[in-house]
Computed example of a mutant assay.
Amino acid sequence: MKVVILQSNYIPWKGYFDLINDADFFCFLDEVQYTKNDWRNRNKLYSKNGIFWLTIPINKKSVNLKISEVTLEDFHWQEKHFKTIIHTYCKSPQFNEIIYFLEDIYLKHKWNFLSDLNQYIIMKICKYSKITTQFADSRHFSLELDRVDRLISIIKQVGGTEYISGIAAKKYLDGQEEKFSQNNIKLIYKAYGPYKQYFQNLPIFENFVSIIDTLMFVPQSDILKYIVSEN
Protein backbone atom coordinates (compact mmCIF):
# COMPACT_ATOMS: atom_id res chain seq x y z
CA MET A 1 0.00 0.00 0.00
CA LYS A 2 1.33 3.43 -1.01
CA VAL A 3 1.27 6.11 1.69
CA VAL A 4 1.74 9.90 1.58
CA ILE A 5 2.08 11.98 4.76
CA LEU A 6 2.00 15.75 4.41
CA GLN A 7 1.04 18.96 6.17
CA SER A 8 -2.26 20.49 5.08
CA ASN A 9 -1.97 23.55 2.84
CA TYR A 10 -4.44 26.27 1.88
CA ILE A 11 -6.03 25.66 -1.58
CA PRO A 12 -2.83 23.86 -2.77
CA TRP A 13 -1.39 23.73 -6.27
CA LYS A 14 -2.08 20.80 -8.63
CA GLY A 15 1.10 18.95 -7.62
CA TYR A 16 -0.30 18.43 -4.12
CA PHE A 17 -3.28 16.61 -5.60
CA ASP A 18 -1.06 14.71 -8.01
CA LEU A 19 0.77 13.37 -4.95
CA ILE A 20 -2.50 12.45 -3.23
CA ASN A 21 -3.70 10.66 -6.35
CA ASP A 22 -0.53 8.50 -6.36
CA ALA A 23 -1.32 7.21 -2.85
CA ASP A 24 -3.72 4.63 -1.50
CA PHE A 25 -3.61 6.32 1.91
CA PHE A 26 -2.97 10.00 2.69
CA CYS A 27 -2.35 11.29 6.22
CA PHE A 28 -2.46 14.97 7.13
CA LEU A 29 0.57 15.67 9.32
CA ASP A 30 -0.74 18.69 11.23
CA GLU A 31 0.67 17.67 14.62
CA VAL A 32 3.91 19.47 13.76
CA GLN A 33 5.17 23.04 14.14
CA TYR A 34 3.32 25.70 12.15
CA THR A 35 5.70 27.45 9.74
CA LYS A 36 5.22 31.16 9.11
CA ASN A 37 5.18 32.55 5.55
CA ASP A 38 4.63 29.08 4.14
CA TRP A 39 1.83 27.30 2.24
CA ARG A 40 -0.22 26.51 5.36
CA ASN A 41 -2.27 29.71 5.26
CA ARG A 42 -1.67 31.16 1.80
CA ASN A 43 -1.47 30.39 -1.89
CA LYS A 44 -1.31 32.10 -5.26
CA LEU A 45 -3.99 33.06 -7.76
CA TYR A 46 -3.47 34.27 -11.33
CA SER A 47 -5.35 37.30 -12.62
CA LYS A 48 -5.03 39.61 -15.61
CA ASN A 49 -2.72 41.71 -13.42
CA GLY A 50 -0.44 38.77 -12.68
CA ILE A 51 0.16 36.38 -9.80
CA PHE A 52 -0.84 37.48 -6.30
CA TRP A 53 -1.07 35.95 -2.82
CA LEU A 54 -4.30 35.06 -1.04
CA THR A 55 -3.44 34.90 2.67
CA ILE A 56 -5.53 33.86 5.68
CA PRO A 57 -4.86 36.03 8.76
CA ILE A 58 -4.03 33.78 11.70
CA ASN A 59 -4.17 34.55 15.40
CA LYS A 60 -0.73 35.96 16.24
CA LYS A 61 -0.62 33.83 19.40
CA SER A 62 -0.73 30.73 17.19
CA VAL A 63 2.69 31.24 15.59
CA ASN A 64 4.53 28.88 17.95
CA LEU A 65 1.86 26.17 17.98
CA LYS A 66 1.24 23.01 15.99
CA ILE A 67 -0.60 23.45 12.69
CA SER A 68 -3.62 21.71 14.23
CA GLU A 69 -3.70 24.31 17.02
CA VAL A 70 -3.50 27.43 14.84
CA THR A 71 -6.62 29.55 15.18
CA LEU A 72 -7.88 32.17 12.76
CA GLU A 73 -8.09 35.84 13.63
CA ASP A 74 -11.74 36.31 12.70
CA PHE A 75 -14.32 35.35 10.07
CA HIS A 76 -14.10 38.49 7.91
CA TRP A 77 -11.38 37.07 5.70
CA GLN A 78 -13.77 34.35 4.44
CA GLU A 79 -16.05 36.72 2.55
CA LYS A 80 -13.03 38.72 1.36
CA HIS A 81 -11.36 35.62 -0.11
CA PHE A 82 -14.65 34.52 -1.67
CA LYS A 83 -15.09 37.89 -3.38
CA THR A 84 -11.44 37.95 -4.51
CA ILE A 85 -11.74 34.54 -6.17
CA ILE A 86 -15.04 35.55 -7.77
CA HIS A 87 -13.56 38.78 -9.12
CA THR A 88 -10.50 36.94 -10.45
CA TYR A 89 -12.34 34.11 -12.22
CA CYS A 90 -15.85 35.40 -12.96
CA LYS A 91 -15.27 35.08 -16.73
CA SER A 92 -13.79 31.58 -16.57
CA PRO A 93 -15.66 28.74 -18.37
CA GLN A 94 -16.35 26.68 -15.22
CA PHE A 95 -17.26 29.62 -12.99
CA ASN A 96 -20.98 28.86 -12.74
CA GLU A 97 -20.22 25.33 -11.53
CA ILE A 98 -17.43 26.23 -9.09
CA ILE A 99 -19.30 29.15 -7.50
CA TYR A 100 -21.45 26.71 -5.50
CA PHE A 101 -18.34 24.82 -4.48
CA LEU A 102 -16.82 28.05 -3.14
CA GLU A 103 -20.01 29.18 -1.40
CA ASP A 104 -19.95 26.01 0.66
CA ILE A 105 -16.37 26.65 1.79
CA TYR A 106 -16.46 30.38 2.43
CA LEU A 107 -20.08 31.32 3.14
CA LYS A 108 -21.73 28.27 4.72
CA HIS A 109 -19.06 27.57 7.35
CA LYS A 110 -17.23 29.59 9.98
CA TRP A 111 -13.70 28.33 10.43
CA ASN A 112 -11.94 28.56 13.79
CA PHE A 113 -8.95 26.33 13.06
CA LEU A 114 -6.66 26.51 10.03
CA SER A 115 -6.15 22.75 9.90
CA ASP A 116 -9.89 22.03 9.81
CA LEU A 117 -10.35 24.46 6.93
CA ASN A 118 -7.42 23.14 4.89
CA GLN A 119 -8.35 19.51 5.32
CA TYR A 120 -11.98 20.19 4.42
CA ILE A 121 -11.01 22.01 1.22
CA ILE A 122 -8.49 19.37 0.15
CA MET A 123 -10.87 16.45 0.69
CA LYS A 124 -13.70 18.34 -1.01
CA ILE A 125 -11.54 19.02 -4.08
CA CYS A 126 -10.44 15.37 -4.19
CA LYS A 127 -14.06 14.22 -4.14
CA TYR A 128 -14.92 16.69 -6.90
CA SER A 129 -11.93 15.50 -8.95
CA LYS A 130 -12.77 11.80 -8.48
CA ILE A 131 -9.62 11.07 -6.44
CA THR A 132 -10.42 8.03 -4.32
CA THR A 133 -7.46 8.05 -1.90
CA GLN A 134 -8.28 7.26 1.75
CA PHE A 135 -7.65 10.09 4.25
CA ALA A 136 -6.61 10.22 7.90
CA ASP A 137 -5.36 12.80 10.42
CA SER A 138 -2.07 12.35 12.31
CA ARG A 139 -3.73 13.37 15.57
CA HIS A 140 -5.40 9.94 15.60
CA PHE A 141 -2.08 8.07 15.55
CA SER A 142 0.59 7.28 18.11
CA LEU A 143 3.42 9.60 17.06
CA GLU A 144 7.19 9.32 17.55
CA LEU A 145 9.23 12.42 18.44
CA ASP A 146 11.88 12.08 15.71
CA ARG A 147 10.59 13.39 12.38
CA VAL A 148 11.58 10.34 10.30
CA ASP A 149 10.56 7.81 12.98
CA ARG A 150 7.22 9.61 13.12
CA LEU A 151 6.63 9.01 9.40
CA ILE A 152 7.68 5.38 9.61
CA SER A 153 5.46 4.81 12.64
CA ILE A 154 2.37 6.12 10.80
CA ILE A 155 3.17 4.07 7.70
CA LYS A 156 3.51 0.90 9.78
CA GLN A 157 0.32 1.63 11.74
CA VAL A 158 -1.70 1.72 8.49
CA GLY A 159 0.07 -1.27 6.94
CA GLY A 160 1.92 0.73 4.30
CA THR A 161 4.68 -0.79 2.18
CA GLU A 162 5.68 2.27 0.12
CA TYR A 163 6.16 5.91 1.11
CA ILE A 164 5.88 8.61 -1.57
CA SER A 165 7.56 11.92 -0.83
CA GLY A 166 7.94 15.16 -2.72
CA ILE A 167 11.53 15.70 -3.86
CA ALA A 168 11.79 18.84 -1.70
CA ALA A 169 11.35 16.68 1.42
CA LYS A 170 14.85 15.21 1.07
CA LYS A 171 15.99 17.93 3.46
CA TYR A 172 13.20 16.97 5.88
CA LEU A 173 14.34 13.34 5.84
CA ASP A 174 17.77 14.64 6.82
CA GLY A 175 19.85 11.82 5.40
CA GLN A 176 17.89 9.12 7.22
CA GLU A 177 16.47 7.41 4.13
CA GLU A 178 17.97 4.07 5.13
CA LYS A 179 15.49 3.86 8.01
CA PHE A 180 12.72 3.15 5.49
CA SER A 181 14.46 0.13 3.97
CA GLN A 182 15.32 -1.09 7.47
CA ASN A 183 11.58 -1.15 8.16
CA ASN A 184 10.73 -2.84 4.82
CA ILE A 185 9.28 0.37 3.38
CA LYS A 186 10.12 1.45 -0.16
CA LEU A 187 10.91 5.18 -0.37
CA ILE A 188 9.83 6.89 -3.60
CA TYR A 189 10.54 10.52 -4.50
CA LYS A 190 7.79 12.11 -6.55
CA ALA A 191 8.70 14.01 -9.70
CA TYR A 192 6.06 16.67 -10.39
CA GLY A 193 4.97 17.26 -13.95
CA PRO A 194 5.07 17.89 -16.75
CA TYR A 195 1.40 18.81 -16.62
CA LYS A 196 -1.06 19.16 -19.46
CA GLN A 197 -1.77 22.85 -20.06
CA TYR A 198 -5.21 24.40 -20.31
CA PHE A 199 -6.30 27.79 -21.61
CA GLN A 200 -5.89 30.39 -18.85
CA ASN A 201 -6.89 33.34 -21.05
CA LEU A 202 -3.54 35.00 -20.23
CA PRO A 203 -0.32 35.31 -22.28
CA ILE A 204 1.92 33.04 -20.17
CA PHE A 205 0.77 29.74 -18.69
CA GLU A 206 1.41 29.46 -14.94
CA ASN A 207 1.64 26.02 -13.31
CA PHE A 208 2.47 27.07 -9.77
CA VAL A 209 -0.82 28.59 -8.66
CA SER A 210 -3.71 27.26 -6.58
CA ILE A 211 -5.78 24.33 -7.85
CA ILE A 212 -8.67 26.82 -7.91
CA ASP A 213 -7.25 28.06 -11.21
CA THR A 214 -7.52 24.57 -12.75
CA LEU A 215 -11.04 24.05 -11.43
CA MET A 216 -12.16 27.31 -13.02
CA PHE A 217 -10.92 26.38 -16.49
CA VAL A 218 -11.23 22.59 -16.75
CA PRO A 219 -14.52 20.61 -16.80
CA GLN A 220 -15.00 18.28 -13.85
CA SER A 221 -14.80 15.18 -16.05
CA ASP A 222 -11.30 16.19 -17.26
CA ILE A 223 -9.71 17.39 -14.00
CA LEU A 224 -7.47 14.34 -13.48
CA LYS A 225 -5.99 14.76 -16.97
CA TYR A 226 -4.61 18.14 -15.90
CA ILE A 227 -3.43 17.44 -12.35
CA VAL A 228 -1.66 14.12 -12.93
CA SER A 229 1.90 14.16 -14.28
CA GLU A 230 2.17 13.20 -17.95
CA ASN A 231 5.43 11.21 -17.51
Rank of each mutant, 00 (worst) to 15 (best):
V63D: 06
H76P: 00
Y192K: 00
Q119P: 04
P57I: 12
L145K: 15
E69Q: 15
K130T: 11
T161Y: 02
S181T: 15
W77R: 04
I185D: 05
S129K: 06
I154E: 02
D74M: 05
I105L: 10
E103Y: 09
L54E: 09
G166Q: 04
I188P: 00
D146G: 09
G166C: 05
K179A: 01
N118F: 09
V148N: 07
I51P: 02
S68L: 08
Y89I: 07
F141T: 00
H87I: 12
I56C: 04
W53K: 07
L151W: 00
Y192C: 01
S181V: 11
T71E: 14
K61V: 07
S165K: 03
K127M: 09
S68W: 01
K179F: 04
T161I: 06
P57M: 13
H87R: 14
T55N: 12
F135A: 01
H81I: 09
D137M: 08
S165L: 05
N49C: 10
L54M: 11
Q182F: 03
Q78F: 06
Q176V: 01
H140K: 14
F75L: 09
G160P: 02
Q134I: 07
I154H: 04
K124C: 04
I167L: 13
F113H: 11
E97C: 04
N64K: 15
F135D: 02
K127P: 00
I121Q: 11
I152P: 00
I122H: 06
N184E: 09
L102Y: 10
N64C: 08
K186L: 08
